[in-house]
């Protein structure tokens, strides 16, 4: 009898058809069933969710909770070691101690810890044209879902254009601006970070790529370019990879990123 929409992370089903199968308050008629379905189907907004008295219908309530659980898990879980091994990423971490501190102290997530700084200089090529950085950010799920596909596209695409790519690294507990510290230490011309976005209830798989020319600590957000909403339901990783290769080439040619490159590139303040 129960609807399966509680397990559906893509969003709630319209619940108007519960009337046929449920117990209390089911005699409430929907004025226009077909219109309700049309309204609910054409928007990601949770419309036509139904009610039990003044409270949400139970399956709508549980669908909401299921989506929140997916988002929470994406924030709290970490990227697995296999992914780092498979993609041959040098593992680094920031000055952040744990997941709780990560959320409270963005300043600590912008700087490598001492051991990681040493490791960076020991393991990575110096002065590359492009340094690639991957970080879990606010969603490890986004990294797991997109980076295995996206990173090889970037590596190959840049190599085809004769652009030298440094040794890619992974940073645990990183903020966007950790790219400034890494790029500065290595003397990279351009630094790119692929980082998990704050999950919404609709998707926890959304990844952003930020790009800075001439990275140095304290570079303003407005001087960074961004390609956001990278995931299968948004900008698919294959398309994002092609777009990024173009953007990187453009950045290197213009020797500028962010508002210095295009006036309409707006800073992402909330990340």
């Amino acid at each position: 009898m129960a609807s399966d929409s509680g397990a559906d992370a893509d969003g709630p089903e319209p619940t108007a058809d519960r009337d046929a199968e449920s117990d209390v308050e089911t005699d409430r008629a929907i004025a226009d069933e077909e219109a309700l379905r049309r309204i609910a189907d054409r928007t990601p907004t949770r419309l036509g969710v139904g009610r039990a008295g003044p409270r949400p219908a139970t399956d709508s309530l549980l669908a909401f909770r299921a989506d929140h659980a997916v988002a929470r898990d994406a924030v709290r879980s970490r990227v697995g070691d296999e992914l780092l091994a498979d993609l041959d990423l040098v593992a680094l971490r920031t000055k952040v101690d744990d997941a709780d501190q990560y959320l409270a102290r963005p300043d600590l997530g912008r700087e490598l810890d001492a051991a990681s700084r040493e490791r960076l200089l020991e393991k990575c090529d110096l002065e590359p044209a492009v340094q690639l950085v991957v970080s879990d950010g606010l969603s490890s799920t986004a990294v797991e879902a997109n980076v295995p596909e996206l990173l090889p596209i970037l590596r190959d695409g840049l190599a085809e254009r004769g652009i030298s790519v440094g040794t890619p690294v992974f940073v645990e507990f990183g903020r966007v601006d950790v790219m400034d510290a890494i790029g500065e230490e290595l003397g990279a011309d351009c630094c790119v970070i692929l980082i998990g976005e704050r999950p919404g209830l609709g998707s926890a798989e959304s990844l952003s790529a930020y790009l800075v020319y001439g990275p140095e600590r304290g570079t303003a957000t407005s001087r960074k370019s961004v390609v956001s909403n990278v995931h299968d339901g948004g900008l698919p990783p294959v398309e994002a990879g092609a777009e990024l290769v173009d953007l990187i080439a453009e950045t290197l040619a213009a020797e500028a990123s962010g508002i210095d490159l295009r006036e309409d590139d707006r800073a992402f303040r909330e990340s």
Partner: peptide
């Protein structure tokens, strides 16, 4: 917001349902 979920601003607030419940 509808069912507490603002799919544009990507955050959660009180649901439409909370209005009649709080008034009651």
């Amino acid at each position: 917001v509808p069912m507490g979920d603002d799919v544009m601003l990507n955050y959660q607030s009180n649901s439409y349902h909370d209005a009649p419940a709080l008034r009651e």
